[in-house]
């Protein structure tokens, strides 16, 4: 993908349709690496196999095996789960590729949007991000009252069910 392509960058969720060359599947080329083809094939094989097993169970159930009605319901659910997992992996890889500006995390994948101004292609509201907060150094606290209060608060945090009257310090 040329980095300065004047394509429709505002289409974040329809990145597959706003490729570098409109009207082609260039933006989905990263889904056509050998590893991804293997995943697509595995997904299709599993879904077809599971649906076939479900159909087999329907025939068994029709032949009089009551328990097979349950299995006939289970196999399509498994097939749907396979599709769901496949779709989640595709979405995850696309998000990772979009997050890595310029350099994709996986060398087999091309980033979905390699332009440096990826901030424009993002929606204004993003998913919340968990950040590991580094505990502040305790020697930075000069105020002894503040230190005592912090100690009290960390004790409360460490003992969620405790009442303030139980504070030993």
């Amino acid at each position: 993908m040329p980095p300065n392509h004047p394509g429709r960058r505002d289409n974040y969720d329809t990145v597959s349709e706003s490729g570098p060359v409109p009207g082609t599947l260039d933006a989905m080329r990263w889904l056509w690496t050998p590893a991804w083809i293997a995943r697509h094939v595995a997904m299709v094989v599993l879904v077809v196999g599971f649906l076939g097993l479900g159909w087999w169970q329907i025939s068994r159930a029709a032949a009089g095996n009551t328990l097979s009605w349950g299995y006939a319901v289970e196999w399509p659910i498994f097939a749907g789960f396979v599709v769901y997992v496949w779709w989640r992996e595709v979405r995850l890889a696309r998000r990772n590729a979009a997050a890595a500006t310029g350099q994709p995390a996986d060398p087999t994948e091309q980033p979905a949007d390699a332009s440096p101004a990826t901030g424009e292609s993002r929606p204004a509201v993003r998913r919340p991000v968990r950040v590991a907060r580094v505990p502040a150094a305790s020697e930075a606290v000069e105020d002894t009252d503040l230190a005592a209060y912090n100690h009290y608060l960390s004790w409360l945090n460490a003992n969620p069910g405790a009442r303030p009257g139980d504070y030993p310090g």
């Binding site: 505990p135 305790s138 606290v141 960390s154 004790w155 460490a158």
Partner: peptide, 9 residues
């Protein structure tokens, strides 16, 4: 994972 941390300081 549940180590408390100071609020200020």
């Amino acid at each position: 994972d549940r180590t408390p941390e100071p609020v200020a300081g």
